[in-house]
Simulated assay, not measured.
Amino acid sequence: MGRRGPRLPDLNLTDDERRTLEGWARRRKTAQALALRARIVLACADGVSNMDVSRTLRVSPPTVTKWRRRFIEDRLEGLSDESRPGAPRAITDEHVEQVITTTLEQAPPNGDTHWSTRSLANAMGMSQTAISRIWRAFGLKPHQVDTWKLSTDPQFVDKVRDVVGLYLDPPENALVLCVDEKSQMQALDRTAPTLPMMPTTPQRQTHDYIRHGTTSLFAALDVTSGAVIAAHHRRHRHQEFLKFLKTIDKNTPAELDLHLVCDNYATHKTPAIKKWLLQHPRFHVHFTPTSASWLNLVERWFAELTTRKLRRSAHRSVAELEADVATWVEAWNADPKPFIWTKTADDILDTLAAYCQRINDPAH
């Protein structure tokens, strides 16, 4: 049987070309189109016919012919996609620069605090879609605002090192307890029954509620085990905090020292509290810096309580709320999960220093 079709031109590779093509062909996640073209050329260079290459790589014969020809004509550069003709660019670099500058440096003339895509499009004489694309490309979000707060505590650095040191290297023969109060917990009852979750429909509850009173939850989180000592009190004074200290004293092994991490709330520093602490030398109080409650791990536990219990619950009385929370705390303590602190004091201070430098930069 005679040979069918025209004779194919020889495809020979240099050592550098083969190494480059083999590198492209090994790609598994990126540039898959280029990897396929490289495998086609390598197979053809090994003397495999176009039809066999087509069957092996599961591509059409015209595709094999195309990339074989492109490589012979332009070598490695021929495997890249050619630029395609299209409409001329309507938005120039000058237009993009003007949009960015206006967004960052000017306010809308109508008194708004920030631009919207519609208002800026009208001011620039461009389409709303074009403004939106430019904003997305440069990460501009005028509708969003972030808040920040820095501690003004003159002992901030020392307190951070003290508290973080307790988390990362707890003292021997001692418990580290993060102590705080979740004050003004509301006993709320919805004005209509909550509707259960159904396929394609989330749980539904009314926006309106009836308030039946408030209570405060005092909690002490054991940093090592994750267990919590908790007690409810209807008021939030130093008398209640003193009662909770006595509760901690009764519910912890007497032979262990207790290191308490607390915030700077006034009820934690009254003369009565100081006198009681002097009479109980196993208690050592470590205060977090002012406006730095994020440093107290019990706040993370309060977030779990809010998300998993309080946010969706309904209670007809304060007593019902307290009993419900006590049951939840008991279930938590049956299988406690500690929160692992990973950042060193130097990591925290370096991050804050970089942020302070950024917000104080005149060019910011």
Rank of each mutant, 00 (worst) to 15 (best):
M1V: 15
G2L: 03
R3C: 01
L11P: 00
N12P: 00
E17S: 07
R27M: 12
T30H: 14
R37F: 00
L42G: 06
A43N: 09
D52Y: 12
S60I: 01
R68I: 00
E73G: 10
S80I: 03
G86F: 03
A87N: 02
R89N: 02
Q98V: 02
T101I: 03
T103N: 10
Q106T: 14
Q106D: 08
P108M: 07
P109N: 04
P109M: 03
G111A: 15
G111E: 15
T113K: 14
L120R: 06
L120D: 08
A121S: 13
A123W: 13
M126I: 11
S127E: 01
T129W: 11
S132V: 08
L140S: 10
P142I: 12
Q144P: 12
Q144H: 15
W148A: 06
V160L: 09
P170H: 05
P170Y: 07
P171Q: 07
P171V: 09
V176Q: 03
C178Q: 02
D189W: 13
P196N: 02
T200C: 10
P202W: 07
Q205H: 13
H212V: 04
T215P: 06
S216P: 12
F218H: 13
F218T: 09
A219K: 03
D222S: 03
V223R: 01
H233N: 04
R235E: 15
Q239L: 15
Q239P: 12
F241M: 15
F244M: 11
K246I: 14
T247A: 09
I248V: 13
D257M: 10
L258M: 07
C262K: 05
N264M: 05
K275L: 13
K275E: 14
W276C: 07
L277T: 11
R282D: 05
P289M: 00
E299V: 02
K309C: 09
R312A: 04
H315Y: 13
R316L: 09
W328A: 01
K343S: 12
T344W: 09
A345V: 03
I348G: 00
L352R: 12
A353V: 03
Q357M: 08
